[in-house]
Design a protein around this nucleic acid. Structure first.
Length: 572
DNA sequence: GCCGTTTTCGGCCCGACTGTTTTCAGTCG
């Protein structure tokens, strides 16, 4: 069983316990579920390696949960969980996924109306049976129906690439208002998380009601979920929830910190405040009733004895400890990239010519790009064979002679065949400046075979960069089953560079793999994977992902000038 | 049910908004 499946069970247990009004236990189960979802090594492997004792080393796993994990591994089921489900046979996960429906409501609906799943709920809501219940009314009924309707439309989360431009647009509009003194985007968008469930915007204003009125009447608004004097919540037509909060100037930093999160980061900060006899909330850092910090985030971290922590790494993944010791890394900056090593053109499936891509790259301030069109294994894109590739190389040399201010490197995105060989001959690869290798077929190989396949390809002395190493497409395609720890080890052994593909639907490597790679001393590049001139600006999403993985400038090879970059590849 | 440079027992983050209430529980972030 995979970790996410364990996580699902523990999350459901958390919901069942909360439904019963049990104290504290729900938090414990919820927390462990969250940990498991983000954990690379599988519980089955951990258990095999060191039994119960090893399981208990996983954060959030104590005696009771370790035993439950063991039971699931050994028998494939969990008596405790089945008992909970038998006692209250409701689809609690689906029901609580509805906006505004929580465990307590599910309990009432089950006991009074025998609602067991979403279709039961939809039925009783439609025939008006909910409004008769104590503490329920007609509005609640309508809200539930709207929530169900929305749930049918999709997952509710969108990629950062989809959310960020829209939110920046709204941000810009608010900034222009005369009643707004200051406005910032907070939330998971500020942390640059790869997908976002909602957006949080904070503002300072002396006339908040004006700002709220403007906010809820923007043309993108599908409906208003709530509106008060300090807080308004809307749902946009594209499904994204956006919250706007107006806060006092002296609390702006505290609010920005609070609403940027993550939740776990905030909890850790508040604990530190508590230890020092202070209280931290969205209005400031207080000693008794006296505010001792809150206007800026910087002063809050300072008073707590921490160095400033960049939003991208506020995930309670060791950044608090690092900040205590003053060891927060100097993360790669959004302006640090000098090159882009994965670009497709009209030679295969790109929309623009080599010259157009080069021109756009120069406009964005880059010094070099590699043209990496697909190779013949990817027939549908008109992938190059050796002959076509040699022809393209000659063209690039000609273009370089007339281009000023930017260098075009000769490259290719070479297919890794099923057996780990490459689909272009070594003699031709040797002629290229940059060779990217990538999996584009046979995605469903067993883990062992897929790992060996990619490792073999990485051992090719001409293979410089492993492109989009896990092959995932966010919300569309799962990563192929590959042992990333082994890939990272092989990268270190062979000097192969791993790519952070910045295309917002990929973001591959993901943050946790970035972190593992740099801890192993593996070098990375950040590429746009541009298929048109408009895609080249995606590089910033790659930088964000690298920052989330704690990458510094010298971990990222395309922060180097061209000559140094080339020299740092495994076959200079 | 977890966790510990205060603790192996006694804690466990904090506040706004909503809908339905005459004072608050539930939900959400």
């Amino acid at each position: 069983m995979r970790n996410v499946e364990f996580a699902l069970i523990f999350r459901e247990i958390s919901l069942y316990l909360e439904m019963q009004g049990v104290q504290f236990k729900p938090r414990a189960y919820e927390k462990v579920a969250y940990t498991l979802e983000a954990m690379e090594e599988s519980l089955a492997e951990i258990y095999k390696r060191g039994g119960i004792k090893a399981l208990r080393e996983v954060p959030g796993v104590g005696e009771a949960i370790a035993e439950k994990i063991e039971e699931i591994i050994q028998t494939g089921k969990l008596t405790y969980y089945e008992e909970l489900r038998r006692k209250t046979p409701v689809d609690i996960r689906a029901l609580t996924a509805i906006e505004g429906v929580g465990p307590k409501m599910v309990k009432v609906l089950y006991e009074k109306l025998e609602v067991k799943d979403v279709s039961d709920l939809e039925r009783v809501a439609q025939i008006g049976k909910i409004r008769g219940l104590p503490h329920f009314g007609e509005k609640m009924e309508q809200k539930i129906l709207r929530g169900i309707e929305f749930l049918k439309q999709g997952s509710g989360r969108v990629t950062l690439g989809a959310a960020l431009p829209l939110i920046l647009e709204i941000h810009g509009r608010l900034r222009e208002l005369s009643d707004v003194d200051e406005v910032e985007v907070a939330g998971s968008i500020r942390r640059r998380k790869e997908t976002v469930g909602d957006a949080d915007i904070l503002a300072i204003s002396s006339r908040p009601e004006k700002v709220m009125d403007f906010f809820v009447s923007m043309p993108e608004v599908a409906h208003v979920l709530g509106k008060g004097n300090t807080k308004a919540m809307i749902k946009l037509k594209n499904g994204l929830d956006v919250d706007l909060r107006v806060v006092p100037e002296e609390s702006f930093g505290a609010a920005l910190n609070y609403f940027t999160g993550s939740k776990d980061h905030n909890v850790a900060l508040r604990r530190i405040a508590q230890e020092r006899g202070l209280k931290l909330n969205e209005y400031g850092l207080f000693r008794g009733s006296q505010r001792i910090a809150g206007k800026t985030e910087e002063e809050i971290y300072k008073v707590l004895g921490l160095s400033f922590i960049p939003p991208e790494i506020r995930e309670d993944q060791g950044e608090i400890e690092a900040a205590k010791k003053g060891e927060i890394p100097d993360l790669v900056g959004y302006q640090d990239l000098r090159g882009d090593l994965q670009i497709q053109t009209t030679w295969t499936d790109g929309a623009n010519s080599i010259e157009e891509m080069a021109e756009e790259a120069r406009r964005l301030g880059l010094e070099y790009i590699a043209i990496t069109d697909h190779t013949k294994g990817l027939a549908m894109t008109g992938g190059s064979d050796e002959k076509k590739l040699l022809r393209q190389m000659a063209t690039i040399e000609k273009i370089n002679r007339s281009l000023k201010g930017i260098t075009v490197l000769k490259g290719a995105e070479v297919n890794i065949n099923k057996d780990g060989s490459l689909d272009i001959k070594d003699e031709v690869l040797a002629e290229l400046d940059v060779v990217g290798i990538a999996v584009h077929s046979h995605f469903n190989l067993p883990r062992r075979e897929m790992t060996e396949r990619i490792k073999r390809a990485m051992r090719n002395p001409h293979a410089d960069i492993l492109f989009h190493p896990t092959g995932r497409v966010i919300q569309k395609r799962e990563p192929y089953d590959v042992d990333m720890d082994e890939i990272i080890r092989t990268a270190k052994e062979t000097g192969t560079v791993l790519e952070v593909d910045a295309y917002p639907d990929r973001l591959d490597l993901k943050d946790e793999h970035v972190r593992k790679a740099i801890e192993a001393g593996v070098k990375l590049v950040i590429d746009s994977d541009a298929h048109s001139v408009n895609h080249m600006r995606f590089l910033e999403f790659g930088v964000a992902q690298a920052r989330r993985g704690w990458a510094r400038k010298n971990d990222i090879l395309n922060t180097l000038p061209e000559k140094d970059f080339i020299r740092s590849l495994k076959r200079p």
